[in-house]
Nucleic acid binder design. Structure first.
Length: 272
DNA sequence: CGCCAGGGGAGCT
DNA sequence: AGCTCCCCTGGC
C-alpha cells in the first residue's frame, strides 16, 4: 500500500475523462484500473491518494502510468486569463492527467470508439478481455488481462461482433493480424516523433486522423496531439471562431483538449 | 416502427 | 477540403 499526497490529481476525473476504458469506480471513493495484465485499486480522500499495491509495483509502473512525475500547474498557469471559457474548463478539471497507456490496448480501444459512446466502448473492451484475455487472479479478485494481438489475429473478421463491436470488428481483427505478423511494429511506432507515429498509425484500416491523435496522446504521450471529435468541433465553433490558439499552447495542446473535452461532457451544470 | 446520435473512416470528386 | 456512404447499437 502506497500513500501519496499530490496536487492536480483526481482519480474520479481521470476515470471519467475517457482515456482509459478499463478504469471504473468500485466504491464511493475507490477506483479499479486494469492496464495490460496489471490490476490496481486506489482510493482518494482530498489530496491524499492510497494505491493498494507494493511500493515496487507503484514505482515500476503506476507512477509513470498516471503521469505523476509531471507538475500540471505548468500547463494550468499558461492558460490565457482573458480566455474565460478555457479558464472555467481547466478549473473544472484540475485533477485530469494524461495517462501513459499501452499502445496496443489504446489502438484497439480507439478503433472501437468510432461512432460509439463511452459507456458502450467500455462494455466492448470488457467483452473482448473476458473472452480473449488471460484470466488473472490477484489478492482482491479475478480479472482479465487485455488480449494480446496473437489472440485476436486468428479470428474471423466478424468474430468480434459477438463482443458488441458491430462493424468495427474487422478493424480490430485486421490490426491484430498486422501486428502479429510483424507488418506493423508497435515498438518502432513508440519511438517515433508525433508526426511520424500519427502517419504510421493512419496506415491501419480504420484509423483516421482523430483516432490516431487519441492514440498519440493517450498512449505515446505526444502532448501536441489534439484529437478533433464532434464534441471538440462544437466547442471550438462556439468559443473559438478563429480556431483554437494552437500557437499559444504549442506542444501541449492535447492537455488543453482534455480539459475542454471533460468540461463539455460533465461541466454542463456548472455553465452559465 | 422510424429516427438519430454516439469521442469516425474510407472512398471519391 | 468537402461530400457521400458505410452500417452497429441503444435510446427515444
Amino acid at each position: 500500500m502506497v500513500k501519496k499526497t499530490i496536487d492536480n490529481f483526481e482519480l474520479e476525473q481521470i476515470c471519467q475523462s475517457g482515456q482509459c476504458f478499463r478504469m471504473k469506480q468500485v466504491g464511493e471513493k475507490r477506483y479499479a484500473v486494469i492496464a495490460g495484465s496489471r490490476y490496481l485499486e486506489a482510493e482518494q480522500q482530498g489530496k491524499e491518494c492510497i494505491f493498494f499495491c507494493e511500493e515496487k509495483e507503484f514505482d515500476d509502473f503506476w507512477r509513470e502510468y498516471f503521469d505523476m512525475e509531471e507538475d500540471y500547474t505548468k500547463y494550468i498557469r499558461k492558460v490565457n486569463p482573458r480566455d474565460d471559457y478555457l479558464t472555467v474548463a481547466v478549473n473544472f478539471g484540475l485533477g485530469i492527467r494524461i495517462l501513459r497507456q499501452d499502445l496496443w490496448e489504446t489502438l484497439v480501444s480507439f478503433l472501437i470508439s468510432q461512432q460509439n459512446n463511452i459507456k458502450r466502448i467500455r462494455r466492448c473492451v470488457e467483452n473482448i478481455c473476458e473472452r480473449y484475455g488471460e484470466k488473472k487472479s490477484s489478492v482482491i479478485g479475478e480479472y482479465y488481462a487485455f488480449p494480446k494481438p496473437e489472440a485476436l489475429a486468428s479470428l474471423d473478421e466478424d468474430a468480434l461482433k459477438a463482443c458488441n463491436l458491430g462493424y468495427r470488428s474487422k478493424y480490430v481483427v485486421r490490426a491484430a493480424r498486422c501486428v502479429a505478423a510483424g507488418e506493423f511494429d508497435l515498438d518502432a511506432v513508440g519511438k517515433m516523433s508525433y508526426g511520424r507515429a500519427k502517419n504510421e498509425l493512419m496506415k491501419l484500416f480504420g484509423v483516421g486522423e482523430k483516432v490516431a491523435d487519441c492514440i498519440c496522446l493517450f498512449a505515446l504521450h505526444h502532448l501536441q496531439a489534439f484529437p478533433m471529435d464532434t464534441h471538440m468541433k462544437q466547442a471550438l465553433d462556439a468559443h473559438y471562431k478563429r480556431g483554437f490558439p494552437n500557437r499559444r499552447y504549442h506542444g501541449y495542446q492535447g492537455v488543453m483538449q482534455q480539459y475542454i473535452f471533460y468540461y463539455e461532457l460533465f461541466g454542463q451544470n456548472e455553465r452559465m
